[in-house]
Amino acid sequence: MKNLNQLIESVVRFLRETQHNDGGWGYTTENRQSFLEPTSWTLRALAGNSSASETINRGIKFIKISQNEDRGWSNLPGLPSDITTSHVILALSTLGLEENLANEGIRWLLLHEVRKSGWGWCKGSDGFAEPLSYSILALASTNCLSENERLIDLLLSYQCHDNGWNCHVPNIHEKFLESQPALTAISVIALFNSKINLQNDILDRVVKRLEEDVRNGNVSTTYTRALVLLAFCKAGRSSSAVSNNLRQALFSSADSNGSWQNNILWTAMGCVALDQFMMG
């Protein structure tokens, strides 16, 4: 692949070709079932691509038929609604389509916030950084966050001692827990997308945490690279040397068929991150 534009073209081709008959996508090319999480990321990757409009329409049709009676979504259609709802909202708002459907999802999210801990992975259970971050992103994308500093404070309360985040709730463990770069990136994206005025030192510290992770070689895989690059872009650091190196590493690790290891989720995430990078 000679340049980013060419890569993105072949990514779009790969994503179009791997769409299932029901309009959804699996996590990898080996799946026969469609899941809402990779479908939502793929639709975000295809947003704004005029050659993919038919593919996008079929994807939206899949989202519509997968909606539960309570107006939320689950990752695998037919299961009880869960935090996948936030991914669907993000996809719909990125596409700028089906506003009513996105609003129904928002209502589901607001109804299922867990007092004091935000959102968990499933209905009624405790909150964690990742589902909370994606819910913040979904609310922000539909202008429903309305300066909700409480949610940002909550996200900050899940922070590890090293200024990053991980999949646990560190403040209930009485021990030092290391952060995970991918989880830190998701949280950083949520912080910057929330448009809540935060003290600069808080934002600086979280971005520095990610930069340190890159320097220490902790960002060496597609999933984590894509999220960390996206976080740098959201934080306005896309022109930094660290971002450029990361972009190059992501770009050069793509396969010739326009995918990253035939993994549809990683491919869609990589595409979203590179797109964002190109937009500066």
């Binding site: 899941f35 999480e37 968990g120 499933c122 259970s125 405790d126 999949c167």
Partner: peptide, 13 residues
């Protein structure tokens, strides 16, 4: 975990 969460919160609870 695509169904049960990271961590598998449904099963923990």
């Amino acid at each position: 975990s695509s169904i049960y969460g990271f961590p598998k919160n449904k099963a923990h609870w």
